[in-house]
Design a protein around this nucleic acid. Sequence first.
DNA 1: GACTATTATGACGATTCGTCAATTTACTCG
DNA 2: CGAGTAAATTGACGAATCGTCATAATAGTC
Lengths: 252, 252
Amino acid sequence: MKAQQPAVSITTQNSGNRARHKQQREQLLLQLAQQILQQEGFAGLTMDRLTAASEVSKGTIYNHFCSKEDLITALSVDSLERQLLLFQQALSVSGHSRERALALHYAYFLFSTTEPTLFLCLLSAATPAVVEKSSASRLAQRQALEQQLLEFCQQVIRQALAENAISLQDGCSIEELTYLQWAQAFGANALYRPAQQMGFFQGLAQQQLVLAGVNLMLDGLGWRPLSADFDYQSCWQRIALALQQQTPQAQS
Amino acid sequence: MKAQQPAVSITTQNSGNRARHKQQREQLLLQLAQQILQQEGFAGLTMDRLTAASEVSKGTIYNHFCSKEDLITALSVDSLERQLLLFQQALSVSGHSRERALALHYAYFLFSTTEPTLFLCLLSAATPAVVEKSSASRLAQRQALEQQLLEFCQQVIRQALAENAISLQDGCSIEELTYLQWAQAFGANALYRPAQQMGFFQGLAQQQLVLAGVNLMLDGLGWRPLSADFDYQSCWQRIALALQQQTPQAQS
DNA sequence: GACTATTATGACGATTCGTCAATTTACTCG
DNA sequence: CGAGTAAATTGACGAATCGTCATAATAGTC
């Protein structure tokens, strides 16, 4: 069950391979950290344990991550990279602008459920205790990725404007719209587990809630076609199929 | 600058006072913890520091909080209690149902800005690392308070139904609506700082974003009067005045 | 005023973090 | 190919923090 032989031919002769090798190991360390997180919980993730699980020493690990918190931030960066991939796939589905917006929301939802651990990392990484002790470069990475994600959202909104599917009156900027949708998606996905755990709703699936939230918001905006004039339920399912069948991919 | 003389007459003779005295001290400890949090950051909050700042020993502190994480959860309980007070005040403003819904959103926003530290505690307390090491009783307290808060929201929605200001077609339950508004409010307030820090929007105030988000969502729901037919901007300001002038209260 | 139950104390062991001098490895060049 | 140098790795160690527990103090009772 140990899938981590070095396996890479470490016959790196020119210094170009050094960086690549280092990055591969970092990826492996992140994978291990994620495993520990899933199996032992957040309190169980210690640097010594990661050291034991890996094949390098603690010093080397601190050569990659300047602190335990930096490791969490690194995991969040990894999360965002995967989200980015999902977003790209989501935008490859065809349809009018509102369908594509829905696809992005689905991608976000999909990530939050298929990778709950990483999604929680994202939450933890936003916490002051973590931010305070993460390296500046890692924080910059995270910021850059977030900006890229938001860029995708803005693209869809611009498409909607071009299609004349929405009209931005009364000083409502593209940034504002993007932010509000981001907030909606973040809240609806992040709060689901806690709410369910406290027995707030019984039968309601997370999917239905997210879809309903998006429809409410986009209807409020007047993004045509309105949910009364279009079957976004089946649109949602079509998107689900399109994204799901692409997910089985690179693992080792 | 030290505002923490015991000051309470500890001439507790009958055992009824014991519990009360203990609770007072717990409140004081929470206040101190919050101070440390503001001044030293999350990484600076250690049990030893709290011990030094207080006038009791470490053992006694661990008599109140079974772990450092339990302390964080206790702070979040404190936050929720204050939120509850704000919600009560918010519901005391007069108006039609949608105005009252707006008042709740304002109360939430107000809390997130006037008590940023406590708001972040709420976020941290939702983190697995904290949940895992908090006492069951404290977690139950938090859950109960959250349920009370949601109860307030449901009240307003029921009022709206009674006023015939909304109609719940297609199996959209009260719980669903409550959840979606909660999610919207949570997201819009929690993400503001990070988004601003990454320079995503320049001039946009948090207030405007929150208000816009609520309007979008409630318009989408068809909650009358729609934002096109009513000046929710001045309504918002009126609520602000009504709540602001009640805030200066109990501190020492 | 003696006696008991409850609470408080802070020194202590256990963990975990993060460092750094010593060592090994990788690469260069004569 | 082998000596020399730069870079990376190691793991023992100090520091900091958590949480405990035997002892001491206090409150309440008879």
